Simulated scan of single mutants.
Amino acid sequence: MAAGQLCRLLRGSTTHWFTPGRALEEDLPVADRERDVATTAVARHEDVRTAARQSWRCSRELVVEAAARWSTEYSVGLHDEIGAAPAGRWPGRPTLPVAAIWQ
């Protein structure tokens, strides 16, 4: 599930489920819209890296919120491991194709 869809599910706004960016201004609170904007960028290296880091943070926040609301579980350790990985690499795991964005 994409972060946009999870956000819509958490906010009870699933009308635009298949196109989560549609009608964002009318459907979601300001804080969610601002968080969404922070996860997008033009195709410039530094902007893409910043947007990717923001996207990771946004996704983590939404997963934590969803887990608390619906009493589900997720791998906190895996989230921490990925978030702490220097350049997207860590022992015993393959190199992530987007490794450069975490630097």
Rank of each mutant, 00 (worst) to 15 (best):
M1N: 09
M1H: 07
A3N: 08
A3S: 10
A3G: 13
A3T: 11
G4S: 09
Q5R: 15
L6C: 05
L9K: 08
L10R: 08
G12H: 07
W17T: 04
T19P: 06
P20Q: 08
R22L: 15
A23L: 10
L24D: 07
D27A: 15
P29C: 02
V30C: 05
A31M: 08
R33V: 10
R33W: 00
E34Q: 14
V37N: 10
A38D: 05
T39D: 06
A41K: 00
A41R: 04
R44F: 01
R44H: 07
H45T: 10
E46K: 04
V48W: 11
V48P: 04
A51H: 01
A51W: 01
A52M: 08
A52N: 07
R53Q: 12
W56V: 02
R57H: 12
R60C: 15
E61F: 00
L62N: 10
A66D: 02
R69P: 07
R69K: 13
S71T: 09
S71I: 08
T72C: 15
T72A: 07
E73D: 06
V76E: 11
L78N: 11
L78M: 14
H79F: 10
H79D: 03
D80W: 02
E81P: 00
I82K: 01
G83E: 09
A84V: 06
A85Q: 03
A85N: 02
A85M: 10
G92Y: 03
T95F: 01
L96V: 14
P97Y: 11
A99E: 15
A99D: 03
A100P: 07
